[in-house]
Design a protein around this nucleic acid. Structure first.
Lengths: 347, 347
DNA sequence: AAACCGAAATGAATCGATTCAATAATGTAT
DNA sequence: ATACATTATTGAATCGATTCATTTCGGTTT
């Protein structure tokens, strides 16, 4: 393995200073064409591969990359349709700003922390549900611009969240308007502890995930104003995977046959619910109305098509990236949702 | 903005050499506990943030990241279900090896080249259909381990491709066995020129994308052995998006009403075809048998469920990452496919 | 007390660029 | 021809660690 050709070698061989050689590559307009050409010719002859990326980074302090972290579940990033849309938006903004996208990957918390510590990036984006987490602390310690998605993070330069409360309230109002009277809420995981199934008062009081807290509050407020007692609502904490959710809903239908309105905190869960209801021989929306949350593409093709609260996840990701990379004012943003009515709530 | 605290500052303040201070952080077992503790205490007091990532990289020459490039279409990575599965596999292997994943992003070819040149990574993975491309040249110039996915790349340390020929042949045989006699092939894009629609001989002779070439050959060989003339097969070059493909198939059904077997080169296209056929009032598989390629999850939930040639894209990505990061023997791999029979070909 | 050994610590060299104040070269106006 | 701007070039300092050959230390063994 021969030694790498360095800029200084090229400079010497071309009979110019190292500074000029550097400019020829990085700021060509500062070097006379004649000289530039000579430098390039010599570089080609010596087999110079261009400026060393890491050396340049060290000197300039810029990494040219945006770090993206998913602390809750590392594999989640390429599994959940909403996360993928988010990444699409992040990617779009990174492309616009000519910055690469570094996805922090790890198998466990400890590894994730060292991945965060070793990532050569200019800013971090973190998608998470709660912020009491060692990975978040590691991110803070890096002292780089940090933008939280879907949760507020202390010390972050900004955050991008959804107006979850209003979205949930819209969903609940719609079900009320469609005539539902007995409700079940299919919740996303409420905190770090991986526990699924029926959600009692105690568990409902220990919700650390912002998204879940806000959506529950929105559902409850609207249902109460519609004359429904919160204690009469069945709460189930579901895994955010259609298959698992489907199994949980199957049990729900057995335990609570009167249920005629289902509020799901994600479309993935709602799709599982549709499946379970169909298998149980009940009809949607005749017997049970189902509304999801997110507005993923798959919801358009279910049978019946899924009513939902639509959010623009692509824009959420793009905006977060813009805030993280941006120099301008970095106010945190709350993004709106819209009600999308399809066949699962209205015939 | 105060000046950053450096390792040398910590070392001085703690009364040890810089080398020892470095070891305290990077190789703690080489430093006596007593001394180590003192160094950490001083570091905390001075507000030292830990070793500077870029400086460490420059010195060690390791970036701790794997670059992933999609030259054909940059947004494609987070849009196509197969690409997403691929990324999931890559992510899994990166996590296993405690390496981050750098996604090269750009809006155009020129930007992509400079993104490749500025990426601090230890190896590159490139997913593409053909290798005559300036981005590929830029990748080669970096002189890092390079693994090609779905196409062979000159100078790559290895490549991971599918046994496309056999997969296509299996698909064609299956349709023959199901009694189809008049075939249409819905092809992926055959080369860099973005042209869609009917594919004449000339265009079929100018296929630069390896995947398309192999699959066409597999389809043709099997159909011919089943007594079908290649010239009697209708070829349509489709955009790899369900909506667009659907529109193209609508026209196909008008122009060629006798078609009773459709071979689609991707499930995404096949799903579009199912849609168009349903809208045209024909039945699947009664009037027309449809088989896709890839085995994406969405194909299980179409109506009827989609028969397909299943590949393991997650493993394809994982394996490619392993080869790129690995030290061991790096033979190129050809991955197998399996026939998955569902309702779109057999009642 | 001398000799020896392994573990711990040292400190200068190195990784490979970019930057910027100072200087030189070139061009233009008087 | 002289003065004055402009544009190019120089070269040393700097970014912030890690490495490794060498020296020092502390403890055993003879």
């Amino acid at each position: 393995m021969e030694k790498r050709v360095r800029l200084v070698d090229v400079a010497r061989a071309a009979g110019v200073s190292q500074g000029t050689a550097s400019n020829a590559f990085g700021k060509p307009h500062l070097v006379r064409q004649q000289v530039r050409d000579r430098i390039f010719a010599v570089a080609a002859e010596l087999g110079y591969r261009g400026p060393h990326v890491m050396a340049r980074m060290l000197r300039t302090g810029r990494a040219g990359a945006l770090g993206v972290v998913f602390p809750d579940n590392l594999e989640y990033a390429f599994t959940d349709p909403v996360a993928i849309e988010l990444l699409r938006g992040v990617g779009r903004e990174c492309a616009r700003q000519a910055v690469n996208m570094m996805i922090i990957s790890a198998e466990n918390q400890e590894q994730a922390i060292s991945a965060v510590n070793n990532a050569a990036v200019d800013a971090f984006l973190v998608h998470c549900y709660s912020d009491n987490n060692d990975i978040i602390s590691a991110l803070r310690r890096r002292n780089l611009p940090l933008v939280g998605i879907d949760t507020d993070i202390r010390d972050a330069v900004a955050s991008v969240v959804l107006d979850d409360y209003t979205g949930a309230a819209m969903a609940a109002r719609h079900l009320l308007e469609c005539g539902a009277g007995y409700f079940a809420i299919l919740s996303l995981q409420a905190n770090e502890a991986e526990r699924f199934g029926p959600m009692d008062d105690k568990r409902r009081g220990a919700v650390s995930h912002r998204v879940v807290r806000e959506r529950l509050a929105g559902y409850h407020a609207m249902l109460e104003s519609g004359g429904v007692e919160v204690d009469d609502i069945v709460h189930i904490e579901c895994d955010n995977l259609s298959e698992q959710a489907s199994a949980q809903v199957r049990q729900l239908l057995i335990d609570h046959p009167k249920i005629d309105g289902i509020l799901a905190m994600s479309d993935v869960i709602a799709i599982g619910a549709l499946d379970a209801i169909k298998k149980a021989g009940k009809s949607v929306p005749g017997d049970i109305r189902v509304i999801g949350f997110d507005g993923i593409a798959d919801g358009e093709r279910t049978d019946p098509p899924l009513s939902t609260i639509t959010q623009n996840s692509v824009e959420k990701g793009r905006l977060a990236a813009e805030l993280a990379l941006g120099e301008g004012d970095r106010r945190s943003r709350v993004l709106p949702t819209t009600l999308t009515v399809r066949g699962s709530t209205k015939a």
